[in-house]
Nucleic acid binder design. Structure first.
Lengths: 200, 200
DNA sequence: TACGCAAGCAAGTGGTTACTTGCATTCAGG
DNA sequence: CCTGAATGCAAGTAACCACTTGCTTGCGTA
């Protein structure tokens, strides 16, 4: 079923550009290189197609993992955040459109947001690990710290093109800046200066 | 010109619900309690009306100010962030729609984003003041810290209804949690415990 | 009273939308 | 060679869209 696959991909792309209302069946079919009628032979409605496309997107973006036991917090966090940031930035249009569908198509919205929820869970687990294994002192809330870091990455990835004046530093620097601020916030030791940055 | 005012308000409301494509002239006129033709007598096109409505929104949300010279950083920040968070949460639908218009209507998007840019400027100024006047030690980047705190507030306000599982704590607690994390991040003294929280 | 302005109303225009129908084409497998 | 499934194509339907036109109505003011 190559056609079905092409339609899902085309739907996601056109949806990212034009949103739910703007993504017409005609345009999606064109993008997929098939006849509009074929679209309706594979999916019973436009809504059905978009839902499937967003589910495929959510399934495709598998969870990036952080180590079960922290060893080099700064390096590990930076590498993970960089990967997460790349995903956010790459799919920023789709994410923006998905969020804005919350009022009219809550199901579509929820499907797209699954990714963020999984990502946040993973980071929270890791930060709790930092606390448990003595890498960070103090009485901070792991969930709040998680949401703060993910929120910084998210806002940066969403706002960098819509408000460039707010983000004069590079995307690469951004991740390090946020991670270092977070590490300071949770009272993390300045890191046992070992093999620095060996990230993709 | 009471009708014009009503149309601007109605346009913003309907746009927040349905987005640019969903906000039909018929629906906006209905919401404003006037005839659809009247809409076109006041604005030369739907695009024109929406642009004016977003400009009115941006103008209306005047800048909240932080003190020129910090005295009680924690209290001042919490009060200011609470006000900012309230605005974000109140207008979250409109903000989401505005952001998602970036590809198709960059002008509308830019107009709506002005608010955020002004808010970020104000916070950055204040954080630099904290550094200059010895309230916070260390070598942190004021812009990154600004974007981190605003990003946390923004993501929370946008995500609280679309991803409730990520935000089990109350909106009120959220602001304090983020502010305290930021203060720790920038090495702020735990505050000269004076007259606590006297916020609206 | 007469004028002019703002608004309402009914109708229409030309275009687009999601989705359907009927029929012709291609092509792989028995 | 025949069958059946997947696709293309042309056309059509009923609804909706932004926007226009022509005419009427109400109201303040000169």
């Amino acid at each position: 079923m190559d056609v079905r696959e092409a339609l899902l991909e085309a739907a996601a792309k056109v949806f990212a550009e034009l949103g739910m209302r703007g993504a017409t069946t005609k345009r999606i079919a064109q993008e997929a290189g098939v006849n509009e009628v074929t679209l309706f032979r594979h999916f019973k409605s436009k809504d059905d197609l978009l839902q499937a496309a967003l589910e495929a997107y959510a399934r495709r973006s598998q969870a990036r993992t952080l180590p079960d036991h922290p060893a080099h917090p700064r390096e590990e966090l930076i590498e993970w955040c960089r990967a997460h940031y790349r995903d956010l930035h790459k799919h920023r249009s789709l994410i923006r459109k998905t969020m804005s569908e919350h009022e009219e198509h809550p199901a579509h919205c929820a499907t797209g947001m699954q990714v963020s929820v999984r990502v946040a869970d993973e980071l929270k687990r890791y930060l709790n690990g930092l606390k448990d294994e003595g890498f960070a002192a103090g009485t901070w809330d792991a969930l709040a710290a998680t949401n703060m870091l993910i929120g910084a990455l998210f806002s940066d990835a969403m706002g960098r093109d819509t408000m460039p004046e707010r983000y004069p530093y590079s995307m690469r620097d951004a991740v390090e800046l946020y991670v270092d601020l977070l590490l300071a916030a949770i009272g993390a030791k300045p890191a046992p200066r070992s093999g620095r940055g060996r990230h993709a």
